[in-house]
Computed example of a mutant assay.
Amino acid sequence: MGSPRWFYQFSGRLLPWLAVPALLLLVGGCVWGLAFVPPDYKQGNSFRIIYIHVPAAVVAMGAYMIMAVAGAIHLIWRMKLAAMVMKSIAPVGAMLTFLALLTGAVWGKPTWGTWWVWDARITSVLILFFLYLGVIALHQAFDNRDAAAKACAVLAIVGAVNIPIIYYSVEWWYSLHQPASIKFVGESTIHSSMLRPLMATLTGMYLFLGWAVLLYTRAEILDRERNTRWVKDLVLSSDPRGPASNKG
């Protein structure tokens, strides 16, 4: 499973199975939550931002943990495919974290009266965004790919300590941010009519993460393996002019 060639071939078959459900769940969940769920008795219609904000924030944290695990696998077993996955997650995770910060600011303006506060959770999510940018920057800073992968793996592993800080920040410190409404242990505080579309968009966002990371990883594989025979054969077979066009 660590073979780039095998991964490229296998992931190509997975892409439509991730893309179609992701699109249906994201669009359907957003329409359901934005148009059909009743207003919250305290926040009114402003609460509806959760159908974008919460999935983006949760998946951004999950993506970072996957990136850290991929970094650890690369450091321990020197698996180059793990380094490719780690590199591919960074831009997707950064985009999701930025979306979470943006939608949080949109929600904060009518709720708190300001776009930004140095709240414990918001600040730790901002640190998560900088960690993603740091991984991206480190990859660009090294000419040697192996050295870049090692440096990024160390940063990803060390930065993973920020994930539990984000999750428990509303319990450890005084925070304007509300506590988690969905609880795995104990009773959730969100009504089922609001929870169902939220779970749809959350599932869709995880599927989108898988789809986007596969696309990035496939592109990275082609770039790194471009001098191998199987990639050259793949390029020739996909040439619409046919193999004959490459003669002479």
Rank of each mutant, 00 (worst) to 15 (best):
V117N: 13
S88N: 03
A141G: 08
V125I: 15
V135Q: 09
N144A: 09
H139P: 05
L102G: 08
P110K: 00
A151R: 08
Y132W: 02
N144K: 12
F129P: 10
F129R: 04
V106Y: 07
R145A: 14
M86W: 10
W107Q: 00
F129S: 09
A149W: 09
A90W: 04
A149V: 08
T97P: 09
T111A: 05
A147D: 07
I122W: 06
D146I: 13
M86E: 14
L138W: 08
Y132Q: 01
H139C: 01
A149H: 07
N144W: 10
L131C: 11
G113I: 06
I136M: 12
V117C: 06
S88K: 04
I136E: 07
F142R: 12
A137M: 13
W112I: 03
V92K: 08
V106P: 12
H139V: 02
I136K: 05
A141W: 13
W116C: 01
I136P: 08
K87Q: 14
G108T: 01
A141K: 13
F142C: 07
K109S: 00
V92G: 09
I122V: 15
G93I: 10
L126E: 06
V135F: 13
S124M: 09
R145D: 11
A141N: 10
H139G: 09
D146R: 14
A100D: 01
L126R: 06
P110I: 01
